[in-house]
């Protein structure tokens, strides 16, 4: 698979650097994510996970370095590509706080995923065709919340809102999904639910997924590869299975307690697999 054809990587980051007034947020980050991978991004608070993801989507310009997604330049030496919107249309971004528009119906929040493709005159009149609405409803059905379609997003629970955000990625037909702490604000049940959906989008639709996580046990359970950041530097990049409490303790020093407290109590690999969640996306 690796050697048969030189498919370009989904994400390629070279020598990325960013300094905020208070700290060095990203320090010479190099990272390549192959198409179809599901990669966990772990690290303590302030380690640069969010900053890195926001650079990949072109929300923030770096000081130095280069990012390409799907073989197209996102930013180079501190300037964001002029055609960034075309690229963002192919990148699904999932936020910790869901970032839905509270007062719009759930289905409209999902239809926002089509804005790049809908002609501007129609999107500015907020008019969507029947087939577009059908697509949005199908996406909502795929994440299991189609019955809330016409409710305001604010009326949904956190887990349901995050699933609506995933439905938006589905109608976007995103090739790459960047998820920034998607489960940090959710209860354990919703968290598993959302991770399961991300894993399915990766498996069944071939989406490349980069998901930043606070808890290492989710990284080990759902992602084969883990990238660990510490103070803006990549300090580990390899199989998640090779992450041991010892290694993590070495990598993170005093922060290890915060990161792996849960894992030290109950080894992640013993968490039972969810039953009955799998067919959600298959429909």
């Amino acid at each position: 698979m690796m050697n048969s054809q030189p498919t370009p990587p989904a994400i390629e980051i070279r020598r990325l650097g960013k300094t905020f007034p208070s700290c060095k947020a990203l320090d010479d980050v190099n990272l390549t994510v192959a198409t179809g991978e599901m990669v966990a991004l772990i690290g303590a608070s302030g380690s640069g996970k969010s900053t890195l993801l926001r650079h990949i989507a072109g929300f923030v310009a770096a000081d130095a370095g280069e990012i390409a997604v799907l073989d197209r330049v996102v930013q180079q030496d501190g300037s964001i590509a002029p055609d960034i919107r075309a690229l963002r249309a192919q990148i699904g971004f999932v936020f910790q706080q869901f970032n839905l528009v509270n007062r719009l119906p759930v289905v409209t929040n999902v239809l926002v995923g089509l804005l790049y493709r809908v002609p501007v005159w129609r999107s500015l009149l907020m008019r969507f065709t029947v087939s577009e609405r059908q697509r949005a409803l199908e996406a909502l059905a795929a994440v299991g919340i189609e019955k809330f379609a016409w409710q305001r997003a604010a009326t949904l629970s956190g887990g349901q809102q995050q699933r609506a955000a995933l439905a938006r990625c589905l109608v976007q037909e995103a090739k790459v999904i960047l998820a920034d702490e998607p489960i940090a604000s959710l209860d354990p049940e919703s968290a598993r639910n959302v991770m399961e959906l991300l894993a399915q989008m990766n498996r069944e639709r071939g989406c490349t997924v980069v998901v930043s996580l606070h808890q290492v046990e989710f990284a080990i359970k759902y992602c084969r590869r883990t990238v660990a950041l510490h103070r803006g530097r990549v300090v580990y990049d390899g199989p998640s299975a090779a992450l041991t409490p010892q290694l993590l303790g070495e990598l993170y020093g005093a922060d290890a307690e915060e990161l792996f407290g849960m894992m030290l109590d109950s080894p992640a690999l013993k968490i039972p697999a969810d039953k009955g969640m799998a067919p959600l996306l298959a429909a």
Binding site: F59, R85, R88, V112, L115, L124, R168
Partner: peptide, 14 residues
Amino acid sequence: PVEGVRATGANALE
């Protein structure tokens, strides 16, 4: 939420 909309490739008016 504005950033959420921006993330889909929407233009400034959208």
